[in-house]
């Protein structure tokens, strides 16, 4: 073996390009870092050299950092971020409290599927933005309207995702509980519901991510603070640096919520097959 190795190159790209094969962790980290750094480098290159004209189209990383630190210090970033977090978490939490039980019912009982599916499948294709006029009419321009946008954006999706999780609980799992003497009620409370928890957790994480994408829509109308309205107003003043700060903040907050959910999953459901 050794003699044929003398001409082997240190690294062959082909080794890392086999479908479904693992690659060394060090390679993974290097590739991930390279991708992030090239994106930053591209941004820096395009903005500092002034290739992109007019220059306010693309602020430099330095400008964005400076704006960010100024907004952090004077508190505007925190005020806006907090307003948005409040709207998103409230809308999403209300959606969760209602969608999870309904989804479990819908996925587990054909009766409830027949009851809810036509409505849910119809409403979920309606664009949330198209309902804003109605929402304003019904509940006004306050924070409730913004929470309602997030609620509508996530509720109907979540109910179907949870229904799918519940429908995929293996039948044999329920049947074994029956043969161990469990009543129908016990099978639901002691087997069906716990069995859905990992899938439900995953979908809660995914839908709160979607909630962030509805932020601009939610803050489109009559918002006085929030990251969405901050971005919208920055456009008027050609403040692309502030838009960038807003975008990066949303990205980071989404990243954090994802991380928090993964940690909660790990701590609350240590038995979950999705955790190694």
């Amino acid at each position: 073996m050794a003699e044929s190795n003398t001409l082997r190159p240190i690294y062959r790209l082909g080794d890392d390009l086999r479908p479904h094969e693992p690659i060394p962790r060090s390679h993974y980290l290097i590739i991930a870092a390279a991708s992030t750094l090239s994106l930053l480098a591209l941004w820096a290159g395009l903005s500092y050299t002034g290739i992109v004209q007019p220059t306010y189209f693309l602020p430099t990383p330095g400008q964005v950092l400076a704006t960010a630190s100024r907004m952090l210090l004077d508190g505007t970033l925190a005020v806006n971020a907090w307003a948005s977090i409040f709207v998103i978490v409230t809308g999403w939490a209300v959606a969760t409290v209602m969608a999870v039980p309904l989804g479990i019912l819908m996925g587990s009982f054909k009766f409830f599927e027949a009851l809810f599916e036509p409505v849910v499948n119809f409403v979920r294709y309606l664009p949330v933005s198209a309902m804003i006029p109605l929402l304003i009419l019904y509940i006004g321009l306050g924070v409730e309207e913004k929470v309602a946008v997030i609620f509508i954006g996530t509720f109907f999706q979540l109910i179907l995702l949870v229904a799918d999780v519940a429908a995929h609980v293996p039948k044999d799992l329920l049947d074994s509980a029956y043969t161990l003497g469990a009543s129908r009620r016990r099978v639901v409370t002691r087997v069906l519901i716990p069995a859905t928890l990992p899938g439900v957790m995953d979908n809660l994480r995914i839908t709160i991510g979607w909630a962030w994408t509805y932020l601009i829509v939610a803050e489109l109308v009559a918002a006085d603070k929030g990251l969405g309205i901050m971005i919208l107003e920055s456009q008027r003043g050609l403040r692309t640096d502030r838009i960038f700060v807003g975008l990066v903040t949303i990205g980071l907050l989404g990243f954090c919520s994802d991380y928090i959910f993964k940690m909660v999953h790990r701590v609350a459901l240590p038995w979950s097959p999705r955790i190694r």
Partner: peptide
């Protein structure tokens, strides 16, 4: 109907994961 007097072991893995 099903009852504790007739236990069953399935081919698929049916342990309660939690």
């Amino acid at each position: 109907g099903p009852g504790a007097d007739r236990g069953m072991v399935f081919q698929s893995y049916t342990l309660f994961p939690w």
